[in-house]
């Protein structure tokens, strides 16, 4: 029971972190850049892990986060310098970096139990309790993954609070922001760094491939029904947590993959909100057309 609660708490933090950043990615029309970054951190994680031999070291955190930033630089380079269209640049970048990561796994980390193909796909959320933090010899205060997520949450929270105005302007009107003299490039890369950090710390919990579901789907669901940024961020976090809790319950009940269930539920919530919202809109329209 205690284990379940820790898993839910950790996964909820993953969902909150990802959902908050997802809102900005979505508004900046960069949803797939988030997807690309989450795939692209893989080689960084493998290389850093190979040298540090530890899945939670600071070296891994920094090294892998930098790879994500490199991916976004590479996308910009391909679009601006090589003049390849945007969507193709994203596709080329993430497939290349992900391929490099997988080649490294299959050669350097052959037979390793900590990082293997399954972990890349959907993480090891069921096993996070193995890596416990115990203080004073016997006081168990939760799994390591929870605290790395908490750390990421504080990083994201602090940056968003301090730079809220900048992010908001960047999200809604980049040209206007630049006109006001705001360094939009800097804010852009701050956002990319945060996205990269989130995918790196979430890697062992939900893997590199499915994290994009946490980034985009709850934020998109919130965008369907809210017109204000604050409300959208709040709702996105709620939708994310709901998907985590329902998905986990379903996965335990049906004995299926936990992360897969969470993201599937997230997608179902999205479709339900879309259909309900459409239904109400239709009623409103018909009411205003026939007031009697």
């Amino acid at each position: 029971m205690m284990n379940d609660i820790w898993i839910l708490l950790t996964a909820s933090l993953v969902a909150i972190n990802a959902a908050l950043l997802g809102c900005f990615l979505l508004l900046r029309k960069m949803a797939l850049v988030g997807d690309a970054i989450s795939h692209a951190v893989l080689p960084g994680i493998v290389v850093a892990y190979y040298f540090s031999g530890d899945k939670t070291s600071l070296l891994l955190l920094i090294g892998a986060t930098l790879t994500g930033v490199v991916a976004s630089l590479m996308i910009d380079f391909l679009t601006k310098k090589a003049k390849i269209q945007g969507d193709a640049s994203i596709g080329i970048t993430y497939t290349l970096l992900f391929a490099v990561g997988m080649i490294l796994i299959s050669t350097w980390l052959k037979g390793n139990v900590d990082i293997d193909m399954d972990c890349v796909l959907y993480g090891e959320i069921g096993l996070i309790n193995l890596d416990k933090i115990i203080i004073d010899g016997n006081l168990y205060i939760g799994p390591m993954a929870f605290y790395t997520e908490l750390f990421a949450f504080f990083c994201i929270g602090l940056t968003l609070v301090l730079g809220f105005k900048g992010f908001k302007l960047l999200a809604f009107n980049e040209d206007y922001a630049r006109g006001l003299g705001i360094n939009t490039t800097r804010w852009h890369y701050v956002l990319m760094t945060l996205v990269s950090l989130t995918t790196v710390v979430s890697f062992e919990v939900v893997g590199a491939v499915l994290v994009v579901g946490f980034l985009i789907i709850p934020a998109a669901t919130a965008q369907l029904i809210s017109k204000k940024l604050n409300r959208m961020m709040f709702l996105a976090a709620i939708f994310g947590i709901a998907a985590v809790v329902i998905g986990y319950a379903l996965a335990i009940w049906l004995n299926v993959n936990i992360t897969g269930a969470m993201v599937s539920v997230s997608g179902i919530i999205f479709m339900m909100v879309l259909i309900i919202d459409k239904f109400f809109r239709k009623q409103q329209v018909s009411k205003s057309l026939n007031p009697a």
């Binding site: 949803a31 796909l121 499915l210 997608g267 999205f270």
Partner: peptide
């Protein structure tokens, strides 16, 4: 077509949901 969500986000939503469902089926 039905929402104000842009194509790239729609791709991300569909891609991750269906892939996740595939992972669920694989575990089955």
């Amino acid at each position: 077509n039905q929402t104000k969500i842009k194509q790239d986000a729609a791709i991300g939503i569909v891609l991750s949901t269906l892939f996740a469902f595939g992972i669920v089926l694989m575990s089955v």
